[in-house]
Design a protein around this nucleic acid. Sequence first.
DNA 1: CTCTGTGAACTCTTTCACAGCA
DNA 2: TGCTGTGAAAGAGTTCACAGAG
Lengths: 221, 221
Amino acid sequence: MAGTPPPQTIPEATVARLPIYLRSLQEFAADENATISSGRLAELAGVNAAKVRKDLSYFGSYGTRGVGYDVRQLVVEIRRELGLTHDWPTAIVGMGNLGRALANYAGFSERGFSIAALLDTSDDKVGTVMGGTKVSHLDDMEGLVERHSISIGIIATPAIAAQDVAERMVGAGIESILNFAPTVISVPEGILVRKVDLAVELQILSFYQERRATDAGSAAG
Amino acid sequence: MAGTPPPQTIPEATVARLPIYLRSLQEFAADENATISSGRLAELAGVNAAKVRKDLSYFGSYGTRGVGYDVRQLVVEIRRELGLTHDWPTAIVGMGNLGRALANYAGFSERGFSIAALLDTSDDKVGTVMGGTKVSHLDDMEGLVERHSISIGIIATPAIAAQDVAERMVGAGIESILNFAPTVISVPEGILVRKVDLAVELQILSFYQERRATDAGSAAG
DNA sequence: CTCTGTGAACTCTTTCACAGCA
DNA sequence: TGCTGTGAAAGAGTTCACAGAG
């Protein structure tokens, strides 16, 4: 009985949207006890209202019929679901252009991710300071991971180095990896990898753009 | 009969994987007339073999039973599907850390995307050279878009500026936008937008990482 | 009367499993 | 015998549509 009111499984697709809802709610700012309807949140998040309601229902968020959702409460609930109630120390490996951009990206710390370690193998970079953090040598990763309880690693190296870095991360105790290198990395079971490939996104755009040109005359909008 | 062998619709999910296959094939390098099986390609791309076969079947790619796919031919076919048979001039708006990283990112040009224009509004940046291209003022975008036939725009500005930039892009004739700003932009119908939010990816990792800690004892792998 | 919460229908995607060609 | 190509089954995710709370 009673037992499991919010089914222990939030669909992946929903999880991927929670950060967007969170961001939208925070932009929506809102005074102390503002409420927001699924329709309005949907608009801000760029999805449709039914989806918002269904998504929020998975973790038993109580909206009020005829009124909407309490913004403050919703923010708290989503943050809890996302595990954003505490800070996540991260390590970035690869201090090229992208790594430097990431190290300087304010958006990370704003959302609960601190940069606990920057790592590279090049003597040119080790010892310099980027985004307020000193760059350490990759060989020192293990100690840093332990000392700072780092559980998320970010790979911003060239493709060729990515697999090796991933293995070192796993060896150092990192359990989740965000991979920006344009290659597939393989990791042991239980290690979670997400990837972002900047050029892949462009190629997807290219597909639809090309098709638009090819499907002559088919209304684009 | 014969008529329309490749059904005119390639599923979105498949389109999103084609760039990965392409990259995998190119890494696989291969001498003149190498072949590759769906199983091997699946391994390289990090998916399963049935998916590879189904994906490739959508555009009528002829593999050879008992042998596999001709690597060279497959590369040509995928590139054609993705519209990568010609160069795509792009414009990057926002020369902060991320914009600079993108401007210097070799992966774009390697895959057929050239940077035809870099744009910013800050006097500090306009006139400087980044990644071999001179930074122009955002006000000059329209002329540059026309002159270089730019159809893809990349937004790398702070969130606050993104909607305005998107509107200027559309006004200048750009039809596809890759948005790195952490906000939803709205555009007229017919304009294609894809978004990449670096912090969102971290938040998704955070969800699963947190859950792993919470689901005490449940095997992670 | 408004707006949530949610079964049910529908659509998209993945996976299975095997016929058939080389 | 090995591997592709593909229907058909299974599984996810989305949307509909409406009962019912406030």
